[in-house]
Design a protein around this nucleic acid. Sequence first.
DNA 1: ACAACGAAGTTAAACGTTTTTATCGTTCAT
DNA 2: ATGAACGATAAAAACGTTTAACTTCGTTGT
Lengths: 344, 344
Amino acid sequence: MQRPTIKTIAQETGLSIATVSKALKHSPQVRPETRAIVIEAAERVGYELNMHGVQLRTGKTYQVAAIMTAPGPKQNEWEGVEYAQLLSGISWALEDSPYRVSLYAVRNFEESQAIIKQIVSLKKADGIIISGTRADDPRIRTMHAADFPFVTYGTSVHNAPHAYVDADNEQMIRVSMARLVERGHRRIALLNPLSDLSYGITRLEAYRHALEGAGLPFDPALVAHGRLTPAFGRENVLTMSDLSNPPTAYICANEASALGAFSGFHERGLVHGRDAVINATDDLNVSQYFAPPITTYYLPISEPSSLLGAYILRRMEGEPPEALQTLLMPKLIERCDDRLTQSR
Amino acid sequence: MQRPTIKTIAQETGLSIATVSKALKHSPQVRPETRAIVIEAAERVGYELNMHGVQLRTGKTYQVAAIMTAPGPKQNEWEGVEYAQLLSGISWALEDSPYRVSLYAVRNFEESQAIIKQIVSLKKADGIIISGTRADDPRIRTMHAADFPFVTYGTSVHNAPHAYVDADNEQMIRVSMARLVERGHRRIALLNPLSDLSYGITRLEAYRHALEGAGLPFDPALVAHGRLTPAFGRENVLTMSDLSNPPTAYICANEASALGAFSGFHERGLVHGRDAVINATDDLNVSQYFAPPITTYYLPISEPSSLLGAYILRRMEGEPPEALQTLLMPKLIERCDDRLTQSR
DNA sequence: ACAACGAAGTTAAACGTTTTTATCGTTCAT
DNA sequence: ATGAACGATAAAAACGTTTAACTTCGTTGT
């Protein structure tokens, strides 16, 4: 038994395939009674739209390309990015639409650039979602120039506005710094992502601005940029704690680096809360299981991810990007007082 | 300027589209010289195969469905599963093929069952990759009955053989237990995944078998089943350490639960290496940053994932499943002696 | 009374491929 | 010399859908 097509329904009802097609997509050209007959027949024979026919005819792919930058097999250190949750959030947002998530795993920035050019020029998808945006991101320019619908996870500083979702890094650092300063910290370290990433820049600027506001000097030795692995957190604690005037607080950009920072504490014999404290931005809600639990800014990844899905749908429907820009403020979770128990 | 098709090449070369099509796919029906002309023209005009035409004509989708069970937005606790790396590994394995990974995020087992039925009956993909297999898995039966190509990440005990990749849980537990017993442990706790999961059963059986071999009694109070979150690890340490005869070693099925176990140690004032030790199975290579680092069995997720990709390709080409079954033995990484420093 | 119109369908073409079948020279055995 | 067999290419149909263009017929306005 073959899979039924609109032709089957046409024979079944005595109508033409054109009418059937129109009826199924609620064209005003077909009378309600006729439509009812078609719908009934469609259900009776178990009709399901064949996307391949549609795709060929219309040129639409009904695919949303999710570009995922994951380090290659040789370099698989944990970076605490719950890409999986990000992807499933997007996938769920598209659930009731005909669109599917098509995965493009790339190893680095250059590869993502190449892939995006290919998707755009060969129209392998109707929309693109990327993350890890840079301040001036050539991929965004590519997509923009081709007038291709896209949404970014992360901001950029292009003059042309585009749809994006991101955590409110500026506010997060501002609040975080104010809170630490208020608790007596004068030497605050910033463990930041790679310096070309847009959110790294945002965080750094907010950090400097906060220092300025508090009348504290900016010390480059207290700022580090790198891939946010546990190793990164550890190394930097080892280095910075050796300074003549070591930091009393570490702001980690994710919980992988925070975990590494703890490892550094352990190595140096530092006690959290006595010698220094660690604050982090937490995607996984895992810092509550650190020993001791630390203060974090927590943004359940389901929020940005479902927004990304919703926004790409709306972009593909032609909605202007200006309306599709959101900064989400992570929730402050104070698990620790973060005042040092004895001054140094 | 329109995108070139085989028709463009036909006009360009004066050949028929049939010949062009055959030439491009290396049919023996076309002379080498003719083929050369076609290839040259194709490159000159920048021809790229349009998959939609192929899909409609052949009925093949060139999609591999990856079913990813991620807990819903309300329940997003870290389970230490690097799905993202799994997905990218699969994606890279398909890189040089015409196949793409199409993502299907589901919230639970029932949903995955429904999705798979749909994919199979409506032929929305040419192959399926699933994980989280159960001992007797209805999804496997569905795919098997329809003679649909699939590979599982995880074993099952069906009579009909199927393609799978998994960690060698049996051997891992056997070696792990022998090692702990040798180091003087008599009360060993097993923190296991949900009891309906196939690998949970394998681990439990191997555990009981090892106890028997060592002449130790099986105590149900030392075995727990659950979602492998930090909370799970923590709760069980809290409970088990209160036993009149508490365990001196905890075998955790992943590093999320191991992290939680540490949190439990901290809460109870237990010291790792003095009161008890934690061993784990590690996907992320993150346990080296625990304080102190613990002994783990480490399997870089890139290995199983690239195998999954390779196997689904071969299955879709009709290779029998018997040849596509692999158990991978994780590497023992001893970061800790695991002998208690003082007997109790 | 008749042109004009609108509503509701139908016809037919088109999207880009693959594949079956047909065609047309050549070669080879008889 | 005849025709069977073969090799290389062309013609045509098919996959399932959408949509522009057309038909039909009843209604409306003058």
